[in-house]
């Protein structure tokens, strides 16, 4: 891979952008107004919030040369703890939950996300457990804690929190979760692409040993990356809590595959060291459009989508393989 690049405006991003535009054209032409409607865009915007941030978080872990299989379960755990905290503030005076309760609940949820991410980071960078195994263990742990919290049943959101995700912003049109996604993506793009910290994340992913010899604090960098992933998962958990009004411990388990697909489509290399956020964010949009489009074809049920993601991932990696081969033999 060539080192020549301008932060963020790289070939992965462009590739995803072009594919996105092509998809829009195809969808627009074949589905017409059913697809190109505000309502549809709003639905898509809300839907991608269920996994978009998770994909961004996963890509952070991937850039450091690791992987994070626990994102979905961190999200559920955070949603669960927030919901319980908010419920604790329900009283006769505030049967639908108080503002304080909601704010504290959100804060606690985000904090839990950071703590979970920190655990992942420390296991990977200090104890040196292989990331796949570490996040496998933590995913069971977080999953288990969520089950315990809910005593095996879903946990409900307080009524006042339910409306958060549904209200629309900006001319009453753009769903809030989508705004959160876009803002997060923009901030993360700058952090990962244009700051010293961002470059350090990449360098640790390229060669951890050389990074240590160059004075980079590997433990801090890796842990920070996983903590950011944890935070993004926490945000997802809160958004889900609001949207779906309840938290199930195993919600979203199929998103693990999807987020890996998105990260790789967006330019991340499973071996680490490569990948930028704009590409991943656009890949989220691409996958969402594909998903929504397939949804509109009644013959293809939801489960086929999973299979398609698998095929897409293999196909995309094969394409990249041949492209790299062609490049290097020039």
């Amino acid at each position: 891979m060539t080192a020549k690049r301008k932060s963020g405006i790289n070939s992965d991003f462009l590739r995803m952008l072009i594919i996105l535009i092509v998809l829009f054209i195809v969808a627009g032409v074949t589905r017409g107004s059913a697809f190109m409607s505000v309502k549809n865009f709003q639905t898509m915007g809300k839907q991608l919030s269920e996994y978009g941030l998770l994909a961004l978080g996963l890509s952070m872990a991937m850039i450091t040369g690791g992987i994070d299989l626990s994102t979905v379960y961190i999200a559920n755990l955070c949603g669960a703890t927030s919901a319980l905290v908010m419920q604790a503030f329900v009283s006769e005076a505030n049967p639908d939950g108080s503002l304080t309760g909601i704010l504290i609940g959100c804060a606690v949820g985000l904090l839990v996300g950071l703590v979970c991410g920190c655990l992942n980071g420390i296991l990977v960078s200090v104890v040196k457990v292989p990331p796949m195994l570490a996040t496998l263990g933590t995913y069971e742990l977080f999953y288990g804690i969520t089950i315990v919290l809910g005593k095996g049943k879903p946990i409900n959101a307080v009524n006042n929190f339910k409306s958060f995700a549904k209200n629309d912003v900006l001319f009453d049109m753009v769903p809030r979760p989508f705004i959160i996604f876009v803002v997060s993506a923009v901030i993360l793009s700058i952090v990962v692409g244009k700051t010293a910290f961002g470059r350090r994340i990449h360098l640790v992913g390229v060669n951890e040993k050389a990074a240590a010899f160059a004075g980079i604090k590997n433990v801090a960098v890796i842990t920070a990356a996983y903590m950011i992933s944890g935070l993004l998962s926490a945000m997802t958990g809160l958004i889900n809590l609001s949207k779906i009004a309840s938290v199930k411990a195993d919600f979203g388990s199929s998103y693990v595959m999807m987020t890996i697909l998105i990260a790789v489509l967006g330019g991340c290399d499973p071996n680490g060291g490569y990948g930028e956020i704009p590409g991943v964010a656009t890949a989220v949009l691409v996958v969402q459009v594909i998903s929504a489009y397939l949804n509109s074809i009644p013959q293809i049920n939801n489960y086929y989508r999973q299979a398609l993601y698998g095929v897409l991932l293999l196909g995309f990696m094969t394409y990249k393989y041949f492209r790299n081969k062609a490049k290097s033999s020039r």
Partner: peptide, 13 residues
Amino acid sequence: LSTSTICYGIAFG
């Protein structure tokens, strides 16, 4: 992982 999801899709889809 990809093969797994393809099998999943076939079995359920």
